[in-house]
Design a protein around this nucleic acid. Structure first.
Lengths: 155, 155
DNA sequence: CAGAAATGCTTTTTGAGTCAACTATTGTCA
DNA sequence: TGACAATAGTTGACTCAAAAAGCATTTCTG
């Protein structure tokens, strides 16, 4: 009766599955002597962005980490020569993380490793349609979770 | 073309959804001035266990953290008087984390908060059947993810 | 057009978690 | 039996990330 509800079970499954897949990706990257998973996610996100750059705040949101955490993550990627910090002409508060050619190269080296692991994790027991269905369901849950809290702080 | 594959999308959805629900639970507990989520998970896991106790190694696996991490987590719960460390008569290497009455009480106080948030996150857009389906699919993915690596270290 | 509020990012601090090394106990097998 | 390996857990050094405070710039408002 840990959670006793079906939703509790779903929550547990979500946690365990996320942990298992994450672990798998991290292990695969580490074994190939590639940078850690957050680096890959950042490179991949920037590669998709217009002009291959993003504002710090937007990037933090995309990567699901705090702004403070992103600042330091970007620092590490800069030190590795994969990314650079550029600035906005019209608003001098904002700074961009901009993908460098070396970062794009690294991304292309890492991508097959990540894709292969995802194939194993997702494709093994799931049809194409099931994967799409999973996506849709998860997004439903996510959007629900982003709403107002259930416990209205009471009085 | 971040991931360009359907599985990449599924991976992204999994990550975002997990983060959103986790954040929601953490916020709700913090606002109610309750202990953090890992404490709840530990209390709930122990409450389900036979004799309300578990070996350290098993508990670590159930909570998806390392043994070293669990040792310290248990230390904190012990300091809070919610749990105690007990020992095995027949194998003096093993120690148990054992739920104390105060821990069981705390669990019952926390449970409604967590359940309410999970209801909102999962029940809002999901039927009962869909939730079960989600569970099953996630478990499939998890079991696939626990298999051997895809990139066979090459040569 | 000042002064105040809001925005964007960084810095600092703090705390939790991982990893590797270590102790203690039990199991194996020659 | 006695040495060696395997298992269970803890400890300490380190890394990573979150939270809160801080600084600079921009926007809003009277």
């Amino acid at each position: 009766m840990t959670e006793q509800t079906a939703h509790g079970e779903a929550w547990g499954a979500l946690t365990r599955t996320h942990a298992a897949v994450t672990q798998r990706l991290q292990d695969a990257l580490a074994q190939a002597e590639f940078p850690p998973l957050p680096w890959y996610e950042m490179l991949a996100t920037l590669a998709d962005a217009p002009e291959q750059r993003m504002r710090m705040g937007d990037l933090a949101e995309a990567l699901v980490i705090t702004r403070g955490g992103l600042t330091k993550l970007v620092d590490r990627l800069i030190k590795a020569g994969l990314v650079e910090r550029t600035f906005c002409e019209t608003d001098r508060r904002v700074s961009y993380a901009t993908l460098l050619p070396a970062g794009a190269e690294m991304l292309e080296e890492m991508r097959p490793v990540v894709v292969a692991e995802l194939e194993v994790a997702f494709a093994a027991n799931l049809s194409e349609g099931q994967a799409d269905q999973l996506c849709a369901t998860l997004e439903d849950v996510r959007s629900s979770a982003c709403g107002a809290p259930a416990s209205p702080t009471a009085v």
